[in-house]
């Protein structure tokens, strides 16, 4: 082979790019660690049918779970099953709106959250100018 180093670099890069999805692809429910299983228990039934990307995201969530406050952990446990029931489009929409909210100033963010919590779901009128 004329360019062994270049080929090596290419192979390494491709292997690294393939590594993350491969982790999720191979992560069948029975292959998860007991700790991950305990956190992801609400989605156990759906787990093996979830797309690789969704599994990778949930695994990431499970890894971050110990760093969350007890209050946040309770919210995650409570919402996880419903979250997994959403369509990929709905999850993407929620992420996009969450990111948009994070771009606002802390004051704007806090006031908008407060108004939504006061008016509740379907609050188009309350949130409209």
């Amino acid at each position: 082979m004329r360019h062994p180093l270049a080929c090596g670099v290419l192979c390494l890069s491709l292997a690294a790019l393939a590594a993350a999805p491969a982790l999720a692809r191979n992560a069948a429910w029975n292959g998860l660690s007991p700790g991950d299983q305990a956190i992801l228990r609400p989605v156990e039934k759906q787990w093996n049918d979830l797309p690789d990307e969704a599994r990778a995201r949930l695994l990431k969530l499970a890894r971050r779970y110990p760093d969350l406050s007890p209050e946040q952990q309770a919210r995650v446990r409570q919402r996880l099953a419903d979250w997994a029931q959403l369509t990929p489009e709905q999850r993407e929409q929620a992420r996009r709106n969450f990111e948009n909210l994070r771009r606002l100033s802390p004051e704007e963010r806090s006031r908008l959250r407060q108004r939504w919590l006061e008016s509740g779901p379907g609050a188009d009128e309350a949130l409209s100018p």
Partner: peptide, 15 residues
């Protein structure tokens, strides 16, 4: 998912 707002908020058209 850990946010104070439920994720329903982020699916709400007005929000």
């Amino acid at each position: 998912l850990a946010d104070a707002l439920p994720f329903d908020a982020y699916l709400d058209a007005g929000f």
